[in-house]
Amino acid sequence: MSTPAQLLLSNPWKQGAKDALPLLGGYIPVAVSFGLFSVQAGFGVLETILVSAFIYAGASQFLFVAMVVSGAPVWLVIVMTLLINSRHLVYGPNIAPYLQRDVRWLPLMHLLTDQIFALTLTRMPNMTPSDRLRWYVSAGVIAWMSWILGTALGAIAGDELIERWPLISEVLPFALPALFLVMVLPRCSDRRWTITMVIATSTAMLLKLFGFPNIAIPAAAICGALAYYAVHPSPTDKGVLS
């Protein structure tokens, strides 16, 4: 996933902030929806904000609130929400080669969402080791804060916001597919990887369309990986490494 290093800003804090901006278009509308949903389900404003701060994983937060309100057994709530988040298992090992030995990375793993993982895997190979921690903190904290603030907005004034600016929740989320597209495109530099990425993308889209949003990402990623092994490399293919 290479983006030419010369396009990066010299200041990793600024680069992290710049890279995190498109995430806000996807995070804030969903966070506002979650805040509103949680308060309407009977949670308090502060409790709703703490759910977003502590769990920080969209789908499992909605599931947590819905299952608690419906009176589901404790063990089932915990197991189901953690199952949804289990796709995160492969994120840490993928970015580990880019993280220098530093104990500060441990608490920062809380910020490792789908989108921050994707950004990290795209950006870090082109950064110096000393810049990586600052870039990650900048991008990660901005994304986390936007999630918490969006939740607070939704919990306090979600009804009014969605009524007054309905288009915001329709238009801004397009920043996420646009962001993922510019991360996918550099990988499609040869036939084998192009087929792999197309299969992963289309499988995920179909699974979501047919009502399996929670398994769409891990299942489609595995399909894509299987396709990679199934496609015979041509002499011009570049292999697995970036």
Partner: peptide, 26 residues
């Protein structure tokens, strides 16, 4: 030191899968 090959494939395909799910309009 090297990451297992399957992981270096799964990382990009996870991103492609996120792209796929995000394509479905709100």
């Amino acid at each position: 030191s090297s990451t297992p090959v399957w992981l270096t494939i799964l990382g990009p395909t996870m991103i492609a899968a996120m792209f796929g799910t995000s394509l479905v309009p709100v």
